[in-house]
Design a protein around this nucleic acid. Structure first.
Lengths: 204, 204
DNA sequence: GTCTATACCAAGATAGAC
DNA sequence: GTCTATCTTGGTATAGAC
């Protein structure tokens, strides 16, 4: 089987694992396992874990930009905000895309990931402004909705969907008319979530 | 000096370091250094790094909830959205608060941090809904703006403020009338950010 | 192109002195 | 209450065989 395909497989696996655990939390070994290859092979392919993350970030950004461009060129009978919203929603089917972006966006202080994340974030903004023809308030409002969607995804709110009416209400506001779809692609990991704990006591 | 004070010092340091590097990226040694104590002492105080992060998360949530409650009870001549927006903006002065929340919100898959993050997120939503008297669309719109502000903070957009007019425009939309203030409290780390790199080549 | 074996280092946690 | 020293694990990266 072609090695180019292998590479794509590893990138897919990396996107999922990085998405769930973050850059530092993920290990090259988990990624290798998820892709069905050996750990040294994944670092062989990408040089370093950091470079692998940068490649994953680039791929996530490409996915968003392409989805938005397609939406902008799409059916002119729908308003642009609506078309872009739908395109964003579809990205949601692969939560790795959005979650890796969120992790990158939270790492602005990193000397190498930070600049890449800033640059990618602004690329998306510019796309909305220039190719999408939005003005600044429109673009930032659209981005804001997207960031909230990312957080809802990242925090795994669906895990509490059944047990908490407030979650149902909020998710209904964030993903209007799309609830059934999004729940199908993100099955809960475990049962209900307990209360957040109080302050820890020193041991002994 | 009282050990309770020491504990606060360590929590402050942890909030900053976790905010910049994330849960997994931060080390207890960095936190200890930042607080001016020894590494074993910080794990002694909190039991585990994980528990320390949970405590920091709880403290960040408390800060937000208290700020919102104060805003809700504040000057009734200003509209509620405005009061809450100002309160949120003031939280920005300590970026650790918001950044730790973002990191936690991106770790929903974690078996112990995930539930705490979900619970905290919903607490904030419920506060807006019940004590703030917002309806679901209002609350989610407000949250969306907050999440975008978090991302702008996390990705360190101010670092490129001088060199990129688009950054100025976007930040003007996200923090209206507050730009000078926010730039003062978040001085750039380094120079300009280069383009994001292409695909990495295998070595050798 | 892909693996096994392994070197090497960093980080969380423990023991125990003061 | 706080430190120094250290144990132990686990994770990235390299060497080198197939």
């Amino acid at each position: 089987m072609p090695s180019e395909e292998r590479r794509e497989l590893v990138l897919d696996a990396a996107m999922t694992v990085f998405g769930d655990l973050g850059y530092a939390g993920a290990t090259t070994d988990m990624i290798a396992r998820a892709a069905g290859v050996s750990q040294p092979y994944v670092v062989r392919m990408f040089g370093t874990k950091e470079q692998l993350f940068l490649d994953v970030l680039g791929r996530a950004l490409d996915a968003i930009m392409q989805a938005f461009r397609t939406a902008i060129a799409g059916d002119p009978d729908l308003p642009l905000q609506r078309r872009l919203g739908l395109a964003y929603f579809e990205l949601t089917a692969n939560r790795g895309i959005l979650l890796c972006l969120m992790h990158a966006f939270a790492l602005g202080a990193d000397p190498v990931i930070g600049p890449a994340a800033r640059c990618g974030f602004m690329e998306v903004y510019q796309l909305l402004r220039e190719e999408g023809g939005m003005d600044a308030p429109e673009a930032s409002e659209f981005l804001a909705g997207g960031m909230l969607a990312n957080v809802v995804l990242g925090v795994r709110l669906f895990d509490d969907y059944d047990s908490d009416p407030a979650v149902q209400e909020l998710m209904g506001a964030v993903f209007p008319e799309k609830l059934d779809l999004i729940r199908r692609s993100h099955p809960p990991l475990k049962a209900a979530t307990p209360a957040r704990g109080g302050v820890s006591a020193p041991p002994r």
